[in-house]
Simulated scan of single mutants.
Amino acid sequence: MISAEEKLNERIKELTCLYEVTSIIVNCDYNQIEDALKGILHCLQKAWRYNKDAQVKLDASGYTIVTSNFPKNPICLESGIKVFNKKAGIVQVAYPNDKYSASDFLREEKKLLQNVCLEIGNLLERKQIKDNEIIIKRKMERADRLGILGEITAGIAHELNTPLANILGFAELLKSRIMEDTQAVQDLDKIINSAIFSREVVKKLMFFACEMPQQMSLVNINPIITSALHLMEPSLKKKKIIHQLDFSNPEVFLRVDTIQLTQVIFNLVLNAIYFSPVKGRITISVKEEKKQVSISITDQGPGVSSKIKDRIFEPFFSTKPVGEGSGLGLSVVHGIIKSHKGMIKFRSNTPKGTIFTIDFPKI
């Protein structure tokens, strides 16, 4: 028989266990979920009546965690784990069979184990939801990059045509001169330079199109922005748009993912081009301050209506005609900037148009 004092002590241990398990789950880092599960098993181990001999094993959703002295032929109390109403594994609490029997488990301990398994199932569900969100975000970014690629394909082709024509033209000249004219050496240099230029343009295209994990590094963002604008020259020329690029300092260093920063600039400038009138003006300014770097894109378009300003960063929301916009661009921009711990805002330009401003913290 268990005395009233012993029953009270057991209830205290069980309540303490539930509190600690809840705290672990609330503060869980989903990238280190295995550590959280180990912590939960440790809490369970302490909550049992004979906690010095109790051992715990978890096997669920690809995770197998066992305490150090789990017996070979145990006396077990176990409960199932469900993830989205499907059985995903079990948790076992065991005693060595040479010292204990099934009657040594308390009825309250069975309820405690069931409650903890329910919490573990909820944790694994949230982990799956988080993983799915990351996958969806990557798919959105990839879809958006491919959409941008479609818009700049004409520009890429134009960029390639001139250097490739130089390669072919000077190669033909080289055939007739190489044996008799030292000018051939200079022509050869031109061939090499044009080939290198072509290779770099293609490299940018492939690098931008590929799906890659975020790679943060300290870089000078000025040439990144300049290069992005250079690739959009055909789109700017098509509408005869005047563009101005202002840097507060010759070099502005920031810890960013180069490809994602390029994607942000592409999206915002392409939007500015789309909504700008023919012969309009677009200004891109980069201002370095003590604790942050601000990038502003200013256009002279119709501006953002007050009716849609609260929806502008929503996925799949677009004011462009059907077939001309996916509604992903600004949503992806918002996500990228948020992942860089930055902030994006917009305001009206005077007398007309919009100014988008991105503030990146200096980390």
Rank of each mutant, 00 (worst) to 15 (best):
C117L: 05
V332P: 08
L112N: 02
D35E: 15
P302A: 07
I134R: 14
I2G: 04
T182D: 13
K338Q: 15
T258S: 07
D359V: 03
Q244H: 10
A171E: 03
F316W: 06
N85H: 08
H158L: 06
P321H: 00
Q114K: 03
A272P: 08
L218S: 13
V264K: 06
P163W: 00
D29F: 02
N161E: 11
A54Q: 07
S79T: 01
F266T: 11
Q300A: 02
F105K: 00
F266S: 13
V286N: 12
A272G: 01
I33L: 10
T153M: 13
Q292D: 09
Y95N: 07
K190A: 08
A157S: 14
R11F: 13
V286T: 10
I363P: 13
N166M: 14
I336V: 10
S227M: 04
M179P: 02
K13F: 03
A47K: 07
L149W: 03
S318G: 00
I156T: 03
E288S: 06
Y274K: 07
A4C: 05
N161G: 11
E289S: 07
V293W: 01
R138K: 12
V56T: 09
N27H: 04
R138W: 05
M206L: 12
F266K: 10
F316T: 11
K72V: 08
A165R: 11
A94C: 05
S79C: 04
E289H: 10
K82G: 08
H230C: 08
N69W: 03
I355S: 01
E289W: 09
M212P: 06
V26N: 10
L229P: 02
L44F: 08
R311Y: 03
M343R: 15
Q114L: 08
G62A: 02
P361K: 00
K279E: 07
I241V: 03
L18M: 13
R49T: 13
T350I: 11
A195N: 00
P277R: 01
A209P: 06
D181T: 02
N193E: 14
I81Y: 07
L173H: 02
F105T: 04
I358E: 01
S285K: 14
T283K: 12
L112M: 00
T64G: 04
I25W: 03
G335D: 15
S296E: 14
K139N: 11
S235G: 11
E159P: 13
K7R: 14
P71L: 04
C210K: 15
M206A: 15
M1K: 05
M343N: 15
K46G: 05
Y63W: 04
R199P: 07
I156H: 06
A157W: 05
S23V: 10
